[in-house]
Each structure stands twice: as C-alpha cells, then as structure tokens.
Amino acid sequence: MMRPLYIDGVSGCRVVFDDPALRVIVPEQADQLFPLQRISRVVCQGCVDWSMSALLVCADKGIQLLFLKNNGEIRARWLSWSGERQSLTQRLVDLLSRANGPELYTNWYLSMEKLAARSFARRIGLSDWRENPVAELRQRLKISLGSGGWQCAQLLQSILYGELLIWLPKYGFERDNEVLISAEFDLAADLSKLLMWDCYLTLLKRTESKNETSLQSIAALFQLQNDRCYSLFRSSINKLHQFLLKVS
C-alpha cells in the first residue's frame, strides 16, 4: 500500500537516493529508509536538503514533492512526469486562452466559494448564514481559531494541496501542464481553498492538542478527513466539468 511520506525538517536533515529507497538522514538519529514503491508523495516542512539523484528518481517514479515553509505555507513543488494530454485539461486550457476565459472561470470559482462558505456558516449554526460575505466569514474564522489554529489551517491546506496534485491527473488534468500550474492560475490551489471550508469545522471542534502544529499531527488530522475531502473533490470536479461543457 502506498502512503505519503511526511518529513519534519531540522538543521542537517538530508534525503538521498539509496536504491531502491529514499534514505532520510537526521543528525543524532538513526537513518530511515523508505522504499520508493510504497511512497505516494512526499511533503517536507522546514529545512530538508535533497540530493539531485533523490529528486530525479522521484520524478522518474511519479512521486511528487511538496516543500512547505515553517508556517505551513507552500514554498515550492517538484512535479513528476505525466502521460498524454487529456480532454479536461484541453477544455480548461482552451477556456483560459479566450479573451473572457479567465473572467468566466473566476465567476465559476467565486460561486463555488460562496456555496462552500454558506455551507460552513450553516453547519456552525450562524442564523444569518445566507447573508455573510465570504471575506467576513473568513475573518471571523481566523479570530475564532486564533494564531495557532490558523497556522494549523494553513498547514492542513498545504497537505490537502499535495493530495490534490495526486487526485487531479486521475480525473483528466495534467500535472505538468504549464498553464494549469502557472503563477496566474493554479487549479489545485483553488480547489484546496474550496475544500478547506469543510475542514475548518474539524479545526474548530478540536478538543485535544489544539496547540499541536507539527506536520505529523496535522497529517494525521487530514487522514481523518481524507475520504470526505475526496468525495467533495469529485463533486467539485463534476461541477467544473459541467461548467466547461457549458462554456465550450
């Protein structure tokens, strides 16, 4: 069974290729070996030094890497090679190449965000859940979570983003298409923001280890949400597909 590899980086932490595995080296600790055939993706937070051979073998094996800042925000990503162009990718690329394409997509995204935020507001019991603007809800959420809780939310969203990079190619979106991962447009980032509205409820309900913000603890929290996130992802992709067919 393939599983994600989460690495909490510290000074001197290194990852090297030790065929047929990745060797994680941490000062004053025993080295750890992780067979490549069992790794679905790698998420690193903090200081982790990668050898070029380790990076290249991950690319060859289809293992994507996500590098996070200490506060949980995404710093960089290393994408593996994907197969032939798929129809959904082409439909979205064609839309974005049109003069009004980005505006049409933005309108679709904002409507989806409004639905997700309203669902969140209703589930937490707000009487005026239909009326609250998204920006206002997000601000109230940040206050409720506090600085530590919001850092957990950022880290959880980064982990979700890494999962979306795995899920999207399964539904016809190329992982290495420059248009879909450009600075101006990032489908995985947009979807992670939508799906996080469902995850915020879990963060608000945390009763144990609220101050625990390590990568491992938040990864464990995500695993509890994984099935629901995947179901919501599929629903979002179906709606995106319907939208693309409508505007094609």
Rank of each mutant, 00 (worst) to 15 (best):
M1Q: 07
P4K: 08
Y6Q: 06
D8M: 10
D8T: 09
G9V: 10
G9E: 12
R14K: 15
V15N: 02
V15G: 02
V16K: 08
D19F: 03
D19A: 13
P20Q: 06
R23S: 12
P27W: 11
Q29C: 05
Q29N: 00
D31R: 01
D31A: 07
L33E: 04
L33D: 11
Q37E: 14
R38M: 13
G46R: 04
C47H: 15
V48C: 11
V48S: 13
W50L: 04
S51C: 01
S51I: 05
S53G: 04
L55G: 03
L56H: 11
L56K: 05
A59Y: 07
K61M: 11
L65S: 04
L65I: 14
K69N: 14
K69L: 00
N70V: 01
N71V: 04
E73R: 10
R77I: 10
W81R: 08
S82M: 05
S82L: 07
G83C: 06
S87C: 05
L88K: 14
L88T: 07
T89S: 14
T89V: 02
R91D: 09
G101Q: 08
N107I: 07
M112V: 03
E113L: 12
E113Y: 00
A116W: 03
A116P: 00
S119T: 12
S119G: 12
A121W: 01
G125C: 00
L126T: 00
L126R: 13
S127W: 08
S127E: 15
D128K: 10
E131F: 07
N132D: 02
A135W: 06
E136D: 07
E136L: 13
R138K: 15
Q139R: 15
R140C: 06
L141T: 06
G148M: 13
G148E: 11
G149W: 01
W150T: 12
W150L: 07
Q151A: 13
L155Y: 12
L156P: 10
L156D: 09
L160K: 04
Y161S: 10
L164I: 11
I166H: 14
G172P: 01
R175N: 15
R175E: 09
E178H: 07
I181R: 08
I181F: 12
A183G: 10
A183R: 14
F185N: 01
K193E: 15
W197D: 02
D198W: 11
C199I: 03
Y200I: 01
K205I: 03
R206Y: 04
E208K: 10
E208L: 05
S209D: 15
S214Y: 02
I218S: 07
I218V: 15
A219W: 02
Q223T: 14
R228V: 13
C229K: 06
L232Q: 13
R234G: 01
S235W: 01
S236M: 00
H241A: 07
Q242I: 00
F243A: 04
L245K: 02
L245A: 00
K246E: 10
K246V: 01
